[in-house]
């Protein structure tokens, strides 16, 4: 009985995980890019191959594809299907929600300007993940002021005029 448990745990340890799926995916993507690379790189120049733009990417992609061979072999050997879970610790809901908000943030900067977008993004972000309204408003205000002072006043960095305000103004 004990031997069987040991065998089970040994085979579980050897079984492919999300790591292998990821490694195999990267390796196969590299192999596809390697095959397509002559068409994805402009080779119209006069340089011989060893001075040309293709040699280094080909070496790199070949090396990357080869590095994934052990993971691909492990997946093929076990044939248990492709495990897609990252690490079994569940879906990162809060991180995903904040990430989606932050994807909109750069668009917000170009649309309504640095200060307004920063205040809104930080406020909404904190309300989503911190959930204390008054503290969130205070932190968003401090953050907006700090960002404005650091980037606009101190570093004097130019940001494009917000297109939404320009549109309304026009």
């Amino acid at each position: 009985m004990t031997n069987r448990t040991d065998e089970d745990s040994a085979s579980a340890a050897e079984a492919p995980s999300g790591h292998e799926t990821l490694a195999a995916g990267i390796g196969m993507a590299a192999a596809v890019l390697l095959i397509l690379s002559p068409w994805l790189v402009d080779r119209s120049g006069p340089d011989p191959f060893y001075k040309g733009p293709l040699i280094f990417p080909m070496i790199v992609l070949a090396g990357t594809a080869l590095s994934a061979v052990p993971a691909i072999l492990r997946l093929l050997r076990h044939r248990v299907g492709l495990p897609f879970h990252v690490d079994g610790n569940g879906f990162p809901g809060r991180a995903a929600a904040l990430f989606v908000l932050m994807c909109l943030y750069p668009l917000g900067i170009s649309a309504i300007g640095l200060s307004a977008a920063t205040f809104l993004a930080v406020l909404i972000g904190l309300l989503m993940v911190y959930r204390r309204p008054w503290q969130s408003v205070a932190i968003a205000a401090i953050m907006t002021l700090t960002v404005h002072l650091a980037f606009k006043t101190f570093l004097d960095i130019w940001f494009p005029a917000p297109w939404l305000f320009e549109m309304i103004g026009a």
Partner: peptide, 24 residues
């Protein structure tokens, strides 16, 4: 090795300086 390869590949994307060829 995989990640090193990915990093090296990412560095090749864009216009190649010496030959001015577009890559990937």
């Amino acid at each position: 090795l995989l990640l090193l390869g990915v990093g090296l590949f990412l560095s090749t994307i864009g216009i190649d300086g010496p030959t001015l060829s577009a890559r990937f």
